[in-house]
Design a protein around this nucleic acid. Structure first.
Length: 426
RNA sequence: GGAGAAGUGGCUGAGUGGUCGAAAGCGCUCCCCUGCUAAGGGAGUAUGGGUCAAAAGCCCAUCGAGGGUUCGAAUCCCUCCUUCUCCGCCA
């Protein structure tokens, strides 16, 4: 959520910034709601003040043993007026709030202009694109040839966009997850978290999945408003919702492995083959909660932590700064890590690292106490995949394939595979 | 799932209709005092919002959440959530 005060005092800055996203700010609607809010709120508060002071007067009169009947008569109509004013205020505030919750974040100044992903800017590459002296297969063929993937089984037990991994492939994914968690906890200073895979509406509102992106979620039946998490970002970041964090506890660095559940509404026909786009996938997620003045630096560090995973896995990748039109709803700035997939002959997103500034924390009321001022201040939140395990699995398969169809296991994973150096058919 | 108890400020905890944003203690901050330490004395110490260019000031809200009763609710009523105890079931 944007700062309502900024909207009131400098609406043009907001309009200009959001225009970079191709988002047109409903100026007239906002100005009208805001003006109504102001007059109605002032009136409601005045009425309440009037009621409070009269009630106090009645109390005093009663204590003094006076007749309070005339006083009661005076306040008779006040209650109705106040009730009406309150109803009006609630209504306008709900509308205003709705509008506010639907506004995307302001972009960081350093985000490049551009309409869509074609304008994203690759800022660095790592690793050599592997040269094969045979034509590389995609991960589906590779895994099928090894007898380790059963898409039909998944389709039977659930449906499209689910997968069944077997034997060495299932173990390899588990190895990837273990490896990533160990690296982030032991070398990058994150605290490992195990958290619920089901969250409530407040949490989804806090991180920005709701109200706008309800269609992307798997909602659970029942009246609690529960949904399966689309990413561990939701439970991890909401850990600080409604908290004032003590300065000695700052910054917070969380890492968790969770499955992620996405309905993939609107992506029919996209990446239908294989494990690239699934309704359920495994991911290791990094979340940082930092002071406002530390978030840019934290963003670079967090991205480097995700990069370190790919480097240690010997997977070639590039880092891309998302342009203004491609940056997600709540993010102020995003770096995508794109890993090389030989079969597709292209780079594909394997991690997305974003700085949300105070967008999520304002929704969540997540603050920390700044020792310099003694006052609570909104934190900045960041998150990034560190990295998506399903896609990492794809990348390891495709980049590690050999002429005989076996898969070379990166050295960093071998300890997690009982010393196995390659996957091969028996 | 059944029965019961409880949710108050950073913490402990008092408060059953008005003078309660809330006693007291602890903690914390500042000041004073004692040659150091320990102890002691004094003052301060919630969050959000509105008004304002801003600050001060003033005002409004908040005692788990949401409704209700009342001129007036931390206090009475209803619903929900959470925690604890006992019983049942269970990985």
């Amino acid at each position: 959520m944007l700062d309502p005060k900024l909207l009131r005092t400098d609406i043009d800055t907001v309009i200009t910034s959001l225009a970079r996203r191709n988002f047109s700010f409903p100026r007239d609607e906002y100005l009208q709601l805001e003006e109504t809010r102001k007059t109605v709120q002032i009136r409601a508060e005045e009425l309440r003040q009037e009621r409070n002071s009269r009630s106090k007067g009645i109390g005093n009169a009663k204590a003094a043993g006076e007749d309070i009947q005339p006083l009661l008569a005076q306040v008779e109509s006040l209650g109705d007026e106040l009730e009406a004013a309150n109803a009006e205020l609630n209504e306008v505030q709900a509308k205003l709030n709705n509008l506010l919750l639907g506004l995307p974040n302001l972009l960081d100044k350093s985000v490049p202009d551009g309409a869509d992903e074609s304008a994203n800017v690759a800022i660095r590459h790592w690793g050599d694109i592997p040269a094969f002296d045979f034509s590389p297969l995609d991960h589906v063929d590779l895994a099928n040839n090894l007898g380790l993937l059963d898409m039909n089984g998944a389709a039977k037990i659930t449906g499209a966009r689910f997968s069944v991994l077997k034997g060495g492939l299932a173990r390899l994914q588990r190895a990837l997850i273990q490896f990533m968690l160990d690296m982030h906890t032991q070398e990058h200073g994150y605290q490992e978290i195990y958290a619920p895979y089901i969250v409530n509406e407040e949490s989804l509102l806090g991180t920005g999945q709701l109200p706008k992106f309800a269609d992307d979620l798997f909602a659970l039946k029942g009246e609690q408003g529960f949904a399966l998490i689309p990413t561990a970002e939701v439970p991890l970041t909401n850990l600080v919702r409604d908290e004032i964090i003590a300065s000695e506890d700052m910054p917070l660095h969380f890492v968790a492995h969770t499955p992620c559940f996405r309905s993939e509404a609107g992506s029919h026909g996209k990446d239908t083959r294989g494990l690239i786009r699934q309704h359920q996938f495994e991911k290791v997620e990094l979340v940082q909660i930092v002071a406002a003045n530390a978030s840019s630096e934290a963003h670079e560090a967090l991205t480097a932590h995700a990069e370190n995973i790919l480097q240690t896995l010997e997977l070639p990748y590039r880092v891309v700064t998302l342009c203004s039109g491609d940056t997600g709803f709540g993010a102020a700035k995003t770096y995508d890590l794109e890993v090389w997939l030989p079969a597709q002959n292209t780079f594909r997103e394997i991690s997305s690292c974003s700085n949300f500034h105070d967008f999520q924390s304002r929704r969540m009321k997540a603050r920390w106490r700044n020792p310099d001022t003694g006052k609570p201040e909104l934190v900045h939140t960041l998150n990034g995949s560190g990295v998506a395990a399903g896609r990492a699995l794809v990348a390891v398969l495709e980049n590690g394939q050999q002429a005989d169809g076996s898969i070379r296991i990166p050295a960093a994973l071998q300890p997690y595979m009982g010393g196995l150096t390659q996957l091969q058919s028996k």
